[in-house]
Amino acid sequence: MASNRSDIGRRTVLRGTGAAMLTGTLAGCSDILSLGSTGANDNVVLDLPEEYDQRSEADLPYPIHGEELPAATAPAPLHDREVSTREFVGDRHVMLTGIFTRCSEVCPRLVEPLVQAQAASIKDEFADEFAFLPITFDPEYDTPEQITEYSEERGADLDIGNWWFLRPESRQRAEEVTDTFGVLSEFVPEDDREMENMAWVHNNVVILANADGYVERTYTREPPNPATALEDVETLRERW
């Protein structure tokens, strides 16, 4: 991706969310319009996304259909080691998103497709084909203990070996990691919040990448319907 994508996207995204942040309509999360995709190629198996023609010319902050999943490395405290988003290439498909756990509205809806896909992977015995990577951009609050509690509350299985919750070492490093995937966030000082848990404004990004390391789907705007995301997971497996 172009090196200036995050800077361009951050200015656009956060300029659009500032007013809503102050009016308290986001509860710490913002629904950001997406533009989209560069187009299908031989590296992907899912069909072209909707609105492909309009999206293909846009300069976007996140990787899109047919592009390589970017590399980023961060500690995964539930596994007690660092994990790279590219280490699963050649082995597992990947689903990832960026969240903060004290978010009570949009973030649970961003995690839910990962949780449901993981549940299906266990039920249908393909758990070793996927890696699920929620990434926090709020590491000061999201301690290893908080990540464990949150994952269990959301219904994730922490014992099956495919739930890799990434926690960058600092707020600055978290911004670097999540910006890599077009998850753009801004901290809200406590005095400016309408509610205590409105600690961040951010856009919504969930990425599904295949085992060759190419993005099949980037869900933006609203968090994806878990059933839609699961259908894409199943289609990816069938065509792989």
Rank of each mutant, 00 (worst) to 15 (best):
Ile135Asn: 00
Ile135Val: 14
Thr136Gln: 10
Thr136Asp: 07
Phe137Asn: 02
Phe137Ile: 08
Glu140Tyr: 10
Glu140Thr: 15
Tyr141Met: 08
Tyr141Asp: 14
Tyr141Asn: 14
Tyr141Leu: 09
Asp142Glu: 12
Asp142Thr: 06
Thr143Val: 10
Thr143His: 09
Thr143Asn: 06
Glu145Ser: 13
Gln146Ser: 05
Ile147Asp: 04
Thr148Phe: 10
Glu149Cys: 04
Tyr150Pro: 05
Tyr150Thr: 13
Tyr150Ile: 11
Ser151Ile: 04
Ser151Arg: 02
Glu152Leu: 15
Glu152Tyr: 09
Glu153Val: 15
Gly155Glu: 04
Gly155Ser: 07
Asp157Arg: 03
Leu158Gln: 06
Leu158Met: 06
Gly161Asp: 04
Gly161Cys: 04
Asn162Tyr: 03
Trp164Tyr: 15
Phe165Met: 08
Glu169Asn: 14
Arg171Tyr: 12
Arg171His: 13
Arg173Gly: 02
Arg173Tyr: 13
Glu175Met: 12
Glu175Ala: 15
Glu176Gly: 08
Val177Glu: 09
Asp179Gly: 10
Thr180Pro: 08
Thr180Phe: 05
Gly182Trp: 09
Gly182Phe: 09
Val183Asn: 03
Ser185Lys: 03
Glu186His: 12
Val188Arg: 01
Val188Phe: 07
Pro189His: 05
Pro189Tyr: 04
Glu190Pro: 07
Asp191Gln: 14
Asp191His: 08
Asp192Thr: 10
Arg193Val: 11
Glu196Val: 09
Met198Pro: 04
Ala199Leu: 14
Trp200Lys: 11
Trp200Val: 11
Val201Gln: 15
His202Trp: 10
Asn203Ala: 09
Asn204Thr: 15
Asn204Glu: 14
Asn204Pro: 06
Asn204Gln: 12
Val205Thr: 11
Val205Glu: 01
Val206Glu: 01
Leu208Met: 05
Leu208His: 01
Ala209Val: 00
Asp212Trp: 00
Tyr214Glu: 12
Tyr214Pro: 04
Val215Ala: 02
Val215Cys: 04
Glu216Trp: 01
Glu216Tyr: 00
Thr218His: 02
Thr218Pro: 02
Thr218Arg: 05
Tyr219Lys: 02
Thr220Cys: 08
Thr220Asn: 08
Thr220Arg: 13
Arg221Pro: 00
Glu222Ile: 06
Glu222Pro: 01
Pro223Ala: 09
Asn225Thr: 04
Asn225Phe: 08
